[in-house]
């Protein structure tokens, strides 16, 4: 079988800093990582390949340096990596991104074989939209399975798949037809440590690099800023509240004095909370 996994290279959010004066992101020196949610999709794809045979192709759209993340995916055991990179893609929103990725996946189908499953993570940690996966599915007319927590029966001959997906208040068990797009929920598996063999292969492997034309994109007005219906007008840091916090000191009192003062300050500002807590304490005492 053939599986395509879409990944994204993102800044390690734990190390993002905002410039205190200009309110701009300080990108310099921030390390990049594979979007952590995508690793669950990649691992699931590798497991299916190990079980059923076939190939896993990883695909990303991004600047040339996104090759690092693809190479990383190869060390985990992916068979092939495709980098979609072109200045026409700059400024893409989720609609333009899903158009470019969907077109590239169609091209991958022609060159390397039609995938039975396209995987993505449930969302990225930098954009947090969860919109690109469904966007790709719609454009390729794939059935869409989001927030999948478990892949059950996969019948390649019969062309069907059963999955469990996280829904509001429970888990939906769904059966549908291949090919599908699956967005994988976090915590569903643990990414393997790549083998030495894969590490050596990844170091030497050629990453396929496609510009917009190579990927079969003819209509450039659907790419980048021009293909993006949404416009970011303003980026800003939020203001605090206008009235300043009341500070209660701790070190100059006994814990008892401090505790009583703090509880008093809370109840003075929120008398309704005191009533609630007393009610709760009564109920608690009744048991």
């Amino acid at each position: 079988m053939h599986i395509v996994v879409c990944i994204k290279q993102v800044p390690d959010s734990a190390q993002i800093r905002v410039h205190p004066v200009t309110n701009t992101i300080m990108r310099q020196g921030v390390p990049t990582i594979i979007n952590p949610y995508d690793l669950f999709a990649l691992e699931e794809a590798l497991r299916l390949r190990d079980k059923f045979g076939g190939e896993v192709t990883v695909l990303t759209m991004g600047p040339p340096m996104a090759e690092d993340s693809l190479r990383r995916a190869l060390t985990y055991g992916a068979d092939r990596a495709v980098l979609l990179t072109d200045r026409f893609f700059a400024g893409s929103d989720t609609l333009a991104t899903s158009f470019a990725l969907a077109t590239a996946i169609a091209r991958i189908s022609e060159v390397y074989g039609k995938p039975e499953i396209v995987f993505t993570g449930k969302q990225t940690i930098d954009g947090d939209t969860a919109q690109v996966g469904p966007g790709i599915a719609k454009r390729l007319d794939l059935l869409q399975l989001t927030y999948v927590s478990k892949i059950g029966k996969l019948d390649l001959d019969g062309g069907s798949i059963e999955v469990e997906r996280r829904a509001e208040g429970g888990v939906q068990v769904l059966k549908t037809r291949l090919p599908v797009l699956i967005t994988m929920l976090e915590g569903t598996n643990d990414m393997r440590r790549g083998s030495m063999k894969d590490a050596l292969r990844a170091a030497r492997a050629e990453v396929v690099k496609w510009g917009a034309k190579d990927a079969g994109i003819e209509d450039m007005t659907k790419c980048g800023l021009r293909g993006s219906p949404t416009v970011v007008k303003r980026v800003f840091a939020p203001g605090g509240r206008t009235d300043k916090a009341e500070f209660i000191t701790f070190t100059d009192k006994t814990p008892i004095e401090f505790g009583d003062e703090l509880v008093e300050a809370i109840f003075k500002r929120q008398p309704a909370v005191e009533d609630d807590l007393i009610k709760h304490a009564h109920e608690f005492a009744a048991y």
């Binding site: 959010s13 905002v18 992101i25 303003r234 800003f236 840091a237 939020p238």
Partner: peptide, 11 residues
């Protein structure tokens, strides 16, 4: 936006 380090207004 940017992993929750800034806000942006989108149209």
């Amino acid at each position: 936006t940017f992993g929750g380090s800034l806000l942006c207004t989108i149209y």
